[in-house]
């Protein structure tokens, strides 16, 4: 399913997992579980040895996954086996894409059912070549906006994004956080774009997910909280978290 189609039924819940954690073979099952429990989009992280935008939880997951044998070939094989009626989105670092070749990587995404890419270390100034490859392959390239992105820079980022815009809720790296900053609400208001706005980084509870939806976001993204539950082998807890978040965002802004 395309992202544009999914966003017709907003608000959405987007769930991130690190592919290959704890084992490459578990990824298909976990992705399908997320979709079943109510995730509207599944973000499939490709583990990298040097994930500079990630906090300790996702760093550790990436390390486990690499050690368990996850690599780009295994990743696409897993993605193509996922049977779920939700869009799959790639999330990963630029060197993994560059190394495979931009055109080949974008085509592999399209061929394995991935409809969009999020590349956290690729600002719009560096994204031209990958954007061209994505356009050719017919997949979206989703840009990120940070809390400290100056207002005059927002159009550059927004115009170079497709699918949705990823609003980073706070500075620093990925990982759960107790409070949702007032600045997140301001950020959602500040960003003017026809694209859907998805907010991530630091969202770990149904209450926080509901809060960003009430503040005007079109989607809430949960990452480290999922990865944390998976690291403890608590798939029942993962299912419960996703159900809880989905219900909470539905109440926050009834469809």
């Amino acid at each position: 399913m395309r992202l544009a189609e999914a966003f017709e039924r907003r608000p959405l819940l987007i769930a991130y997992i690190c592919a290959g954690d704890p084992r490459p073979r578990a990824t298909v099952e976990i992705a399908e579980l997320l979709a079943r429990a109510g995730a509207d989009v599944v973000e499939l992280g490709l583990p990298h040895s040097d994930p500079i935008a990630d906090g300790p939880v996702i760093q550790a997951a990436a390390q486990r996954a690499i050690e368990a044998g996850m690599n780009t070939d295994v990743y696409f094989e897993a993605a193509s086996k996922i049977r779920a009626n939700v869009p799959l989105v790639f999330m990963g670092y630029y060197n993994m894409i560059f190394r495979r070749g931009l055109d080949r990587f974008a085509k592999d995404c399209a061929d394995s059912g991935i409809t969009g890419l999020i590349v956290p270390d690729l600002p719009p100034e560096e994204a031209g070549p990958l954007r061209a490859a994505c356009r050719k392959a017919g997949v979206d390239l989703i840009s990120l906006i940070a809390p400290n992105t100056p207002i005059e820079r927002i159009p550059l980022i927004a115009e170079n994004s497709s699918g949705f815009l990823y609003l980073v809720a706070r500075s620093g790296v990925t990982g759960a956080r107790a409070d949702l900053q007032e600045s997140t609400k301001a950020l959602i208001e500040r960003v003017k774009t026809p694209l859907p706005k998805a907010v991530g980084f630091g969202i770990s509870t149904p209450e926080q997910a509901a809060e960003v939806i009430r503040a005007g976001a079109d989607a809430a993204i949960v990452g480290s909280a999922c990865v944390d539950l998976i690291s403890r082998g608590d798939l029942a807890g993962l299912e419960e978290l996703i159900r809880g978040m989905k219900a909470a965002i539905g109440e926050a802004r009834p469809i």
Partner: peptide, 20 residues
């Protein structure tokens, strides 16, 4: 310039673009 031929650049998270 930010580059030396095809090398260099700023392949960093958006959060670091403003500090840089």
């Amino acid at each position: 310039m930010k580059r030396f031929g095809r090398f260099g650049g700023q392949f960093v998270p958006e959060t670091l673009m403003q500090p840089l």
